[in-house]
Computed example of a mutant assay.
Amino acid sequence: MRLHDRTFLLLGGTGGIGQALIGPLVECGARVIVATRHPERLEKRAGVSPVHLELASPELDRQLQQLSEVYPDIDGVIHCAGQNRFAALDAMAVSDLDAQLMVNLRSAMLVARHFTPRFRKAGVGALVLVGSTFGSIGFPGYTAYCASKFGLRGFSEALRRELADTPVQVVYVAPRATATAMNPAPVNELNRALGNAMDAPEAVAAQILQAMEKDERRRFLGWPEKLFVVINGILPKLVDKAMLKQLPVIRRFLDSGVVS
């Protein structure tokens, strides 16, 4: 995928991974339209245009239409926006469930639905969807997040196959635990207790760009997480047993009363 002279719509540009993507994209010669709820938080720089977009809004489809009218040259979308909450299922309000499904899954589907016809007509276009290792491995305390990311992975796979005879590229990248502000202190402590590595947002951003430049269909990040994804798909009982051993530690943080 060529990055130079492209115009990318970046969703989640004020988050850790999204923010880390802006600089490298501009340095590659791309123009970046950063859509966020808080465009005022972005530093002004050449090649970057902040715009307001509410991914959880019932009016998202209309907002996308208005955005396209202002920026008709968009020929790529990078969706790395996300919400999560580390909590037991019965401790989450309906609004918590709705927010994760709306932002993590529904918004990606609506964005793809909006831009796919334009990209097909133009003969060029890319949809880059940033998922998670938890889109392949169910993890206690992240039931809603896993559901949304499992859905995103399935959506990207089905859409890629649906568009296989078109010039539209669909890329799915699944990071492992990443050190961003989305993770509260208890989650960071849990990762340390379990010995889970956490990547810097800049490292994840570099991997996303590599996957784009190499025209990869999917890329899973981190070792041994990539191995666990394969094992979980083939022999899920092995992962069940491993998770059962970790469950007392996970419950200690789940039941602490301090959640994101």
Rank of each mutant, 00 (worst) to 15 (best):
L67M: 09
L67S: 04
L67C: 01
S68G: 12
S68W: 03
E69T: 05
P72C: 05
D75P: 06
D75Y: 06
D75F: 07
G76T: 09
G76I: 11
V77A: 05
V77L: 12
I78G: 06
H79Q: 12
C80S: 14
G82N: 07
G82R: 01
G82K: 03
G82A: 13
R85L: 07
R85E: 02
A87N: 14
L89C: 03
A91L: 00
A91D: 13
M92H: 00
A93E: 15
V94S: 13
V94G: 13
V94C: 10
S95C: 03
S95W: 02
D96A: 04
D98E: 15
Q100V: 06
Q100S: 04
Q100F: 03
M102G: 00
V103A: 05
N104V: 13
N104A: 11
N104I: 13
L105S: 11
L105G: 09
L105V: 11
L105Y: 08
A108R: 03
A108D: 08
M109L: 14
M109V: 15
L110E: 06
L110V: 05
L110F: 10
V111P: 04
A112S: 15
A112G: 12
R113G: 05
T116C: 15
T116W: 10
R118E: 09
R118M: 11
F119Q: 11
R120F: 00
R120N: 13
R120W: 05
K121L: 14
G123L: 07
V124S: 11
V124Y: 09
V124L: 10
L127A: 07
L127D: 08
L127Q: 08
V128T: 13
L129Y: 01
L129E: 06
L129M: 14
V130T: 12
G131L: 07
S132H: 09
S132I: 14
F134M: 14
G135T: 13
S136T: 10
G138L: 04
G138A: 15
G138C: 09
F139V: 12
P140R: 07
G141R: 03
G141S: 07
G141F: 03
G141N: 02
Y142A: 13
T143Q: 01
Y145E: 09
Y145C: 07
A147P: 03
A147S: 14
A147G: 01
A147T: 11
S148A: 15
K149E: 07
K149L: 07
F150A: 10
F150K: 05
G151K: 00
L152F: 04
G154K: 02
F155N: 06
F155Y: 15
S156Q: 08
E157D: 15
E157A: 15
A158F: 03
L159H: 08
R160F: 01
R160C: 02
L163K: 08
A164K: 08
A164M: 05
D165C: 01
T166S: 15
P167C: 08
V168S: 02
Q169K: 13
V170R: 00
V170E: 06
Y172Q: 02
Y172P: 00
V173F: 02
V173D: 00
V173Q: 01
V173L: 02
V173N: 02
V173H: 03
A174F: 04
P175Y: 00
R176K: 13
A177D: 10
A177C: 01
A177V: 10
A179P: 01
A181G: 05
M182T: 14
N183W: 11
P184H: 10
P184Q: 12
V187P: 01
